[in-house]
Amino acid sequence: MPIASFNQISQTMPLSFPTRPALVAYVTCGDPDLSTTRAVVLAAIEAGADVIELGVPFSDPVADGPAIQRASQRALEQGTTLVDVLKLAAEVRQHAQSTGLIIFSYLNPILRMGLEKFCKVARHAGVDGALLTDLPVEEAGDYLREMRRNDLATVFLAAPTSTDERLKCIAQVSSGFLYAVSRTGVTGARQQLNQDAQKLVRRLRKYTKLPIAVGFGISTAEQFTAVGEFADAAVVGSAIVETIEGNPGKEAESVAEFIKQLLRRQHSTFSSTMSSVSGG
């Protein structure tokens, strides 16, 4: 399938996700070690992931649920750093020219490296953009400046609790795509998606033409397909992290298999799946 190059977006045009929903896959880098992460990422791309979020492990992941907390802990025990993640990004880029690569991190590791250096190294590594979980738009002035100087996309979170005024501001400073958080809460797989996500995407759509990805809690093919009814992309994170955790020694194959299952229903009829959303 044709995949848009993320590299183009920061210059002139927004990212166009070719399939609907496109798959944004999250991994915590260094869990259980960096070479496994590399194999998992390449397998995920091969299996059809359109964008990869390379998660930087952090000691205090306040926005994350148990699965990503455990993954971060394992990655930190391996000594994984932001520098390692950027090196990994460069390696992945050599094998996958047209897949979107986003650095997904808490702010402090980036600050510690220095914004300027981070942006330069990230750009050099072939990274397309970043999302910083604990950096709201109000505090993002310097970050936006450095990121733009290096043609890197700035993906921000929008939440069901965000006011219209905030959504407008978030839409204005975002580039690449927007990440709509499906519900209040931390990351982690859920049985059902609730209506918060759909409402939020509708509200956000008023302020932006950028693709909107929905994340937090998506773990099944039904949920994935249902998200395609109202959003451009679905982010799958904790479910992938749990797949890695549950299949030691065969992480890459298991993630590839999981992704293929997610994507299998993509072209089937959508209407029957909507009940799982509206029933949430």
Partner: peptide, 14 residues
């Protein structure tokens, strides 16, 4: 100082 939290909390802080 400042306000470095996930977006979900921003409205509550406001």
């Amino acid at each position: 100082g400042g306000r470095y939290v996930p977006e979900t909390l921003m409205s509550a802080l406001e």
